[in-house]
């Protein structure tokens, strides 16, 4: 069968979701942000909630998320996305509200807003992209930077003495009674992507139940600031990030 025949007579297995705009994303080649954006957009498309969704972008690499999602979007001050989501959801209870935050935004400057939105049990979805580094500002240490890991602000490697421990904020969040579903996922292989999408879907569906925060951490890469090619970054992620940030559900309604 020729290529033309397959396209003409076969089935369409995969296409870019129209819930993403046509704008070319500014992310570096191979960055997990693009994949995660796509998964969220696909979930919004599949649930048919494009007209009912309001997203909140952080400060950090994904500050421009609003240029890529074809949904209404609010750009929050650094760390304040959970406070923003709280107000939007409380004032628009019929809408689907999600935050999209990186590790610096969610687990450093915005820790208070994160913990309190989760503890209040706001009926929102929170997407947390953890790549253990500050991407936008040029590779500084994040609260989630691994011990021994080099960044431009811990150039000889993170030490406990100088910088304290990497923060497993998702574990803290799972311990809060206001959260309903807490999971840690990744997007560096097709299998992980498919699983992550199911988790995001669940995290959005949960808003219908009004039972509290659904929180999805996604362990991701930062090949530019990790200073390695995208494929090597994904290998490094599997070898170094996953042992410290193991994948799987931390809290599910069933358990």
């Amino acid at each position: 069968m020729t290529r033309e025949e397959i396209i003409k007579n076969g089935e369409l297995v995969y296409r870019r979701t129209p819930v993403l705009t046509d704008n070319v994303m500014h992310y570096c080649p191979g960055c997990g942000h693009g994949t995660i954006h796509r998964l969220i957009a696909e979930v919004i498309e599949e649930m048919g909630i494009q007209d009912k969704t309001i997203g909140i972008s952080p400060v950090g690499c994904s500050v421009f998320a609003y240029n890529y999602f074809d949904v209404d979007f609010v750009e929050a001050a650094h760390g304040r996305a959970p406070a923003c989501a709280t107000a939007i959801k409380r004032l628009n209870t019929d809408k689907f509200v999600f935050t999209y935050q990186g590790d610096g935004d969610l687990a450093a400057i915005g820790t208070a807003e994160t913990i309190h939105a989760c503890n209040r049990g706001e009926n929102i979805t929170m997407i947390f992209v953890n790549n253990a580094i500050y991407g936008m500002t040029g590779g500084q240490m994040a609260p989630t930077t691994l011990l021994g890991m080099k960044t431009v602000t811990c150039p000889y490697g993170r030490t406990v003495e100088a910088n304290g421990y990497p923060l497993k904020i998702t574990d803290i969040i799972a311990s809060l009674p206001g959260t309903y579903y807490v999971t840690r996922q990744a997007v560096f292989t097709p299998a992980h992507v498919r699983k992550c999408k199911q988790a995001i879907r669940k995290a959005f569906e949960n808003q219908k139940l009004k039972k509290g925060v659904s929180f999805v951490e996604i362990v991701s890469n930062c090949n530019s600031n990790w200073k390695m090619p995208a494929t090597k970054a994904n290998e490094w992620l599997e070898a170094n990030m996953l042992p410290f940030y193991p994948l799987g559900d931390l809290k599910t309604p069933e358990k």
Binding site: N9, G10, V13, R15, M25, R38, P190
Partner: peptide
């Protein structure tokens, strides 16, 4: 036509057909 490539593509540049 497994779409593995499209599924991991951060920029969503791949459309997949199969017959």
């Amino acid at each position: 036509g497994c779409a593995n490539c499209a599924v991991v593509c951060p920029d969503g540049v791949i459309t997949v057909y199969r017959a």
